[in-house]
């Protein structure tokens, strides 16, 4: 039985339908990446699942418990990390963790012990007794996630956890989420970035205008978009020579075409860009420039909805 089951979830704000019949499931021990642009309904879905918002219709069950009718039971089983590091800046990291523990009915000794455990786990031990206002963005994020894990939730909600982080902190956050999922944590992750969903999620749900429009693994979604493409500039080489240079790989690649003076070849699963490069070089083709192009969120959206992601008006 899936740990999270969502069926026909709707929620509107005035005339705006933030969710218009959302359905999905999250299996135990897996990561579902909910992918969509601003305003697609991701945050609304997370807020309903974490009991912060009531749905207008539909059902959402976590571990078989209805989030709308039994919110108190749900709150003992979930962890939430929102779009911004939600920590008390005037307390120390240790105090932040202990405070949350106390709200989960831990006694002082247990909350102290759990705080120490999490500070060590999230590499905040040395900074544990410092007031959080002096923390870097990455440290605050780590503390925020650790606060969500104080009561050992059965499902963790990460709502755009890398929004606003610099590239280094973003990579650190990915590693952190990898560690959590390696431990078997069931996670629902919302993101605007395909590469993030690709790296972290077992299954991806693409949502648009409050509805799921596609679901599958990252590879499956990429295939729907056409997968990766290699683009190479071969200078004055004749097209026939280039095609001959690709040689045996032809059957494993998509139909080549030219764009802006470069050769573009779709790469299908099982073939790698370096294989294409090696094949061309061994055929004596002088490759001036070579680029691997991966599908972006825009590519996915363009394929699935016929319009770029930017056209979606933010309503969250």
């Amino acid at each position: 039985m899936p740990l999270v089951e969502v069926s026909g979830l709707t929620r509107s704000f005035g005339d705006t339908n933030a969710l218009a019949g959302l359905d999905f499931e999250v299996e135990r021990g897996t990561v579902l990446g909910m992918l969509g642009p601003n305003g697609a309904g991701k945050t609304t879905a997370v807020r309903i699942l974490t009991t912060l918002l009531r749905p207008n219709a539909g059902t959402a069950l976590i571990d078989g418990i209805n989030v709308a009718t039994e919110p108190r039971r749900i709150r003992t089983r979930i962890g939430l990390t929102g779009q911004y590091a939600a920590v008390d800046e005037r307390l120390t990291a240790r105090e932040n963790l202990q405070l949350i523990g106390r709200f989960f009915r831990m006694n002082k000794a247990d909350s102290r012990e759990r705080a120490a455990e999490l500070l060590a786990k999230f590499r905040l031990e040395e900074a544990g007794d410092r007031v959080v206002s002096g923390f870097s963005g990455g440290m605050r994020r780590r503390l925020d996630i650790s606060m969500s894990l104080v009561a050992r939730p059965i499902v963790l909600f990460l709502d755009e956890p890398t929004t606003g982080l610099d590239p280094r902190s973003r990579m650190e956050m990915w590693d952190l989420i990898d560690e959590l999922t390696a431990d078997g944590m069931t996670t629902l992750l919302t993101t605007q970035y395909l590469d993030e969903a690709d790296r972290l999620a077992d299954q991806i749900l693409v949502i648009d205008h409050g509805r799921g429009i596609a679901t599958g693994t990252a590879d499956e979604l990429k295939d729907r978009v056409g997968g990766a493409r290699v683009s190479f500039d071969v200078g004055d080489a004749a097209p026939e020579a280039v095609l001959a240079g690709i040689g045996e790989l032809r059957s494993a690649l998509g139909e080549p075409f030219t764009a802006d003076g470069a050769f573009v070849v779709p790469v299908r699963p099982g073939t790698t860009a370096p294989q294409v490069m090696r094949s061309l070089m061994s055929a004596g083709i002088d490759v001036v420039d070579f680029e691997l192009q991966r599908p972006t969120l825009d590519d996915v959206f363009l394929t699935l909805t016929g319009r770029p992601a930017e056209e979606v008006v933010a309503d969250e």
């Binding site: 929102g82 939600a86 709200f103």
Partner: peptide, 13 residues
């Protein structure tokens, strides 16, 4: 505004 209120509301407080 900082999301901490929601963080608390998502606990059994």
């Amino acid at each position: 505004e900082g999301g901490y209120f929601d963080k608390l509301r998502a606990t059994p407080i």
